[in-house]
Simulated scan of single mutants.
Amino acid sequence: MKKTALITGASRGIGRAIAIELAKNGYHLALFCHSNIDMLNALAEELGKKYIVEVYTYCGDISDYGFTIPACEDALEKLGQIDVLINNAGVAHLGLLTCMSVDEWEHVINTNLSAVFYTSKTIAPSMIRRKSGDIINISSMWGSVGASCEVAYSASKGGVNSFTKAFAKELAPNGVAVNAITCGVVDTDMNGQLSDDEKAELAEEIPVGRFCKPEEIAQTVLSIINAPFYMTGQIIGVDGGYI
């Protein structure tokens, strides 16, 4: 049977790794990015040829429901169904809360949390009708414990975690699973502002002794998809033992 997935934030880092992992396992894809459409189209072409899957690309601001909802509807129409929704797109903001502008706050909250509502509201009804589907939200360990100088990011990811637990309870009677992955420090561009010395110091604090690889998050996504349906509403930590 045809398997399909929609992935936000798919041009780089974790989202890109998830796209590759799912294409490798026969999934037809709808991939979203904010601005790197050339990079995303190149990935789509590569995956389509290598794994013989359909790949559709969308470029726009995921925090804007005026873009996100119609784009999700189009992806649903083109693919025929969405079996797996991966809410991965996210932004960070480093700095004191008292120095943060209202626009900066809204950008983080709308990108990291409101977008999860937009995509889920659009895609979930078709999953409910089929009584099958997986929604996997890519969150952060800071959503569980909070990080100094990352209040907005921590709040948004804490919201994602609560959203996951609550929505899982709504959808469980209809055969749809909702889970989240709370990532630790992943080796992506989001951590690119750190110097080599800062990265080395941070890695020493992680029991595993290194940053997580995006491919490890992608492998976790696949394991959740393949898990028994009874596993729903879970916040799954992949942080190398940090938290």
Rank of each mutant, 00 (worst) to 15 (best):
N110D: 15
C99Y: 11
I128H: 02
Y118R: 02
V102D: 13
A155L: 08
I69L: 10
I136L: 08
I123T: 01
H107Y: 07
Y118D: 02
V91G: 02
G143L: 05
E150S: 08
S139Y: 02
M100Q: 15
A75K: 01
S162K: 09
K157Q: 04
K78R: 15
E73F: 03
I82W: 05
N88M: 08
N110T: 02
N110H: 15
L97A: 13
V84R: 00
Y118K: 03
D83T: 06
Y65S: 14
S148N: 10
I69C: 10
V84S: 01
H93N: 12
V102K: 13
A152N: 06
G159T: 08
I135S: 01
E77H: 14
G66L: 14
E104Q: 14
D64Y: 03
T119L: 04
A147E: 13
H107K: 15
Y118S: 00
R129T: 13
Y153P: 00
S114R: 14
I138Q: 00
Y153W: 06
G133M: 06
A155V: 14
M127S: 05
E77Y: 14
G60N: 11
S144R: 15
V160H: 02
A89T: 03
H107C: 06
K78V: 09
H93E: 13
D61T: 09
I128W: 03
G80F: 07
K131C: 06
